[in-house]
């Protein structure tokens, strides 16, 4: 029973942080840059591991954030200076960095507590096995503690920087004229994506984290384009999918992270179809009214 709740709470925390960040990615048409970053932080994680870092250590955060920013920079560099078309630039950069990460893992597999499959879909179910450690007087599992801090940081960032983030998202030209640095917010957001990916890494892996980032935000976007309702809806979808996904994984005996990501996708499909029907009814009513 406690095991179930540990996994569900962990999943909810990952989903919450990722959904918030994801809304900005979707609105800025940067979903695939987010995807690229989540793959490309892998070498940063492995190098930090090799230098003796543990999951959640400062090494790891710095390494990952650095690689996240390097990715963004490289994509733009090859695109602007090298003349590689945007989509190909994203594809070439993240596959290269991810390949380097996997090679490093394979070469140093004896010294590093990482395996290739864990990289892809994490190990949500193992969070329960972690020993509890004291943080500020509370006994809590380290992964959960890190995720709580992440959620706190992300919410604070979005609340304090709401004006800057929103303006640079919806109207970058206007933001620039009133003196808000579009570039700075861009890199802040990319940094946030990198750090979320790293902290979520051992629970959901580098690839499935993309589902947590993009899918709830996309589902919410179908319902509302306004930022605040969109974020709240994305949170709702993320959290409910964590519950339902865990139940699914339990029923069919599969990986919880993958099951939750699947449910996130199914939520999108359901909302998408309902939206299609609604649009059709609206259209029919309008036609009937015109007659």
């Amino acid at each position: 029973m406690l095991e179930d709740w540990t996994v569900i709470i962990t999943a909810c925390l990952v989903a919450a942080s990722c959904s918030i960040i994801g809304c900005f990615l979707v609105l800025r048409k940067m979903a695939m840059v987010g995807d690229a970053i989540s793959h490309a932080v892998l070498p940063g994680i492995v190098i930090a591991f090799m230098m003796g870092g543990k999951m959640g250590s400062w090494y790891l955060l710095v390494g990952a954030a650095a690689f996240g920013l390097i990715t963004t920079f490289l994509i733009e560099f090859f695109n602007k200076k090298g003349g590689v078309q945007q989509d190909a630039s994203i594809g070439v950069v993240f596959t290269s960095l991810f390949a380097i990460g996997i090679i490093l893992i394979s070469l140093y597999t004896r010294n590093v507590d990482l395996d290739q499959e864990c990289v892809l879909y994490g190990d949500l179910d193992s969070v329960y096995l972690e020993l509890q450690e004291p943080f500020f007087g509370f006994m809590i599992k380290p992964t959960i503690f890190q995720l709580l801090v992440l959620l706190l940081v992300i919410s604070t960032l979005v609340i304090i920087g709401f004006r800057g983030l929103a303006l640079t998202t919806f109207d970058p030209a206007y933001a620039a004229t009133i003196g808000i640095s579009v570039m700075a917010w861009h890199y802040v957001l990319m940094g946030a994506v990198s750090i979320s990916t790293v902290i979520s890494f051992n629970s959901v892996g580098a690839i499935l984290v993309v589902a947590f980032l993009i899918t709830p935000a996309a589902t919410a976007y179908l319902i509302s384009s306004k930022l605040i309702p969109m974020i709240l809806l994305a949170l709702l979808f993320g959290v409910t999918a964590s519950f339902l996904g865990y139940l699914l994984a339990y029923k069919i005996n599969g990986a919880s992270s993958a099951a939750i990501a699947t449910v996130l996708g199914l939520q999108f499909v359901v909302v998408f179809i309902l939206k299609l029907f609604k649009d059709k009814i609206v259209l029919l009513n309008r036609n009937a009214g015109n007659r």
Binding site: K29, A31, M32, L208, A211, I214, T215, A259, F268
Partner: peptide
């Protein structure tokens, strides 16, 4: 938009595959 649609599909299919 296309980028979101791609990311969404990619992660959904991959998740089903891993599951």
């Amino acid at each position: 938009k296309a980028d979101t649609a791609i990311g969404l599909n990619l992660s959904l299919f991959f998740a089903i595959g891993v599951l």
